[in-house]
């Protein structure tokens, strides 16, 4: 029975061996198998092709396939590191690994930096920060005048851009996060520690034992 499932799974595009994924991430083999259950659920919600399309990601996040959101787009793009427009299983597990409570803080800090570096310049530019604050205001009930938004961005930049060159580089970002650790709070998902309870995997457990 295990062999049958094993052969079947290898034919799924983007499927990767849980033991390899577990060796490269903070997850155990059982947790990777549980993540596969979650992955299957999300990746079959609209198009059942074993890949997570952006609409499926939006549906899983917002319960609405058409809800666009700048930050969800950025997360999707970072998960899709092959940049082929879909999230494969290996990409899903490796990316979520950063959000594991036991993942190195340095990985979380770097991931957040890449997330906010909207134009992939290697810096968080003032314009990008302004754009992100506007995007946040757009999705919330918080109404702030343009002047106030400018002041918030200016104040944050004066605190974070210690070299004063009008942009935040990775070193400045690391220093800024070390002074404001709450900034990467959303880079940790406690759920990932209980993933085997939330998504028990019965089929794959017959294949591999921890």
């Amino acid at each position: 029975m295990g062999c049958f499932h094993s052969k079947h799974l290898r034919q799924i595009p983007g499927y990767e061996d849980p033991t390899i994924l577990a060796s490269e991430t903070p997850f155990t083999v059982s947790e990777v198998e549980a993540l596969y259950e979650l992955f299957k659920k999300i990746s079959s919600s609209i198009i059942d092709d074993g890949l997570i399309h952006k609409e499926e990601f939006q549906l899983a996040l917002f319960r609405n396939r058409n809800r666009r959101n700048l930050f969800a787009d950025r997360i999707f793009d970072l998960f899709d590191y092959k940049r082929n427009g879909v999230i494969e299983f290996g990409e899903f597990v490796r990316s979520l690994g950063v959000f594991h409570p036991n993942a190195p803080t340095a990985d979380k800090v770097t991931f957040a930096f890449r997330l906010y570096d909207l134009r992939h310049t290697g810096y968080i530019e003032r314009e990008e920060l302004y754009e992100m604050v506007l995007a946040l205001l757009n999705e919330s009930d918080l109404a702030l005048s343009d002047d106030v938004v400018e002041m918030i961005v200016d104040k944050t930049f004066s605190d974070a851009d210690t070299k004063g060159d009008g942009r935040i580089d990775l070193d400045e970002w690391k220093e800024f996060v070390s002074k404001n650790p709450s900034l990467i709070k959303n880079m940790t998902l406690p759920y990932l520690k209980d993933i085997t309870l939330a998504f028990p995997s019965f089929v794959l457990n017959t294949e591999v034992e921890d």
């Binding site: 917002f62 959000f99 404001n180 900034l183």
Partner: peptide, 26 residues
């Protein structure tokens, strides 16, 4: 905090798009 003393990154980290916990809701 008054708006001008808010940290812009603190503000944007509250975005629903960055809250991946909803992926795990059944």
């Amino acid at each position: 905090a008054t708006p001008v003393t808010m940290n812009a990154f603190e503000l944007i980290s509250k975005s629903q798009g960055l809250n991946l916990s909803s992926l795990f809701e059944k």
